[in-house]
Nucleic acid binder design. Sequence first.
DNA 1: CTTTTTACTGAATTCTGATTCAATAATACA
DNA 2: TGTATTATTGAATCAGAATTCAGTAAAAAG
Lengths: 207, 207
Amino acid sequence: MRRRTGDKERWITAAAMKIFAREGFHGAKITSIAKEAGVATGSVYLYFANKEGLLQHIFSELWQAMHASFQDLLLRKELTEKERIEHLIDSIFDLFADRPALALLFVNEQPYLLREAPGEMMYHYVDFLRMGEQVVRSGIGKGEFSPDMHPRVFTNFVFGGIRQLLQQWARAPRQFPLYVIRTEIKRIVMQGLLPRAVLNPAGNVRA
Amino acid sequence: MRRRTGDKERWITAAAMKIFAREGFHGAKITSIAKEAGVATGSVYLYFANKEGLLQHIFSELWQAMHASFQDLLLRKELTEKERIEHLIDSIFDLFADRPALALLFVNEQPYLLREAPGEMMYHYVDFLRMGEQVVRSGIGKGEFSPDMHPRVFTNFVFGGIRQLLQQWARAPRQFPLYVIRTEIKRIVMQGLLPRAVLNPAGNVRA
DNA sequence: CTTTTTACTGAATTCTGATTCAATAATACA
DNA sequence: TGTATTATTGAATCAGAATTCAGTAAAAAG
């Protein structure tokens, strides 16, 4: 017999992440991935069915992590819905914080998988958005949020905005740091662009 | 001599749009596009240098249209900045309103072109976002918008949110009509999720 | 130390689909 | 009508890269 030495599966996924992110799924060559991983071309096929399987595996782990942290947040009864939304936003950024390559994969290759492997992907995707919607609904119910907000449109909008900023960040991590992005997103999401009326001590409205 | 009959270039771009949107750029076969357009395979190459050129041509027209309507809006002095932003949002949706296939192309294939043809694409992209930022800055200057808003993050966020919703819509136009999306986006962008303090007739603050 | 079993290798194979181009058709012009 | 010129065709070519597999290496078992 012979034992597997080293965690080749991990080397390969790490390499794939890097190459997919740089070249795009279609531009990435299995040969480059193998070289980057330090294994032979053929070895990739010992661990994954094919190129697409490799991509799916990466996404699958990602969605799983995302789902888990969302699930956690939904269960924390002590949070207000406003806090919950803020934590949801944070948890997405936490996931990508030190992995810009993963972020690029996530934002760029999602459409491909959604077309080629609609089943699993669609499931995660829909489930994920559903969770967001749920929080918004519940916040409206409690009077925390504007009652005329459309939960599904809102959730999609925020999700899309986050993706776009993740992409900008991953493309050039220096142009704005992630903590700025998170903070700003929360501001936009909660307060919007217009200045808010605030109460002065006398109870009157100030611009 | 022989004259070109029919507007083959247009037939081909129309077909390409449709097929690219359905199969994705990489999944689309030139042969299918030619058949859909009602011309021979080789004819595609009489009008476009290659497959990528075809995609670029579509994007190029699109960005041009986008740029033009943005430019118009920037020049309309009678608008408040708030109105200007609302019109910007509308102009994007107007562009895609009856062309879901174009919308899918736009949201799905942008990353590919940004990688493969960074020059022109990047130019349009950056310019486009810059225009948005400009409006926000100017609105802040005039006191129309929250002074602590980060113009670049804001613009990217909104752009991303719009993309996401365009995609959802294009994927299944029936789930929410475009006019709902526009309205909701404007609400989110302007007011955010939290309920606003409003004045009642007596000048006091109501929840 | 030999045998057996499993891991790994990377050059060769295969497939897919973009691109080409020799042949043909249509129109203009003389 | 005949000839020149340009447009169009689509089967054949070609390139590139995913996948395979016969061969080799390493570890375990005896």
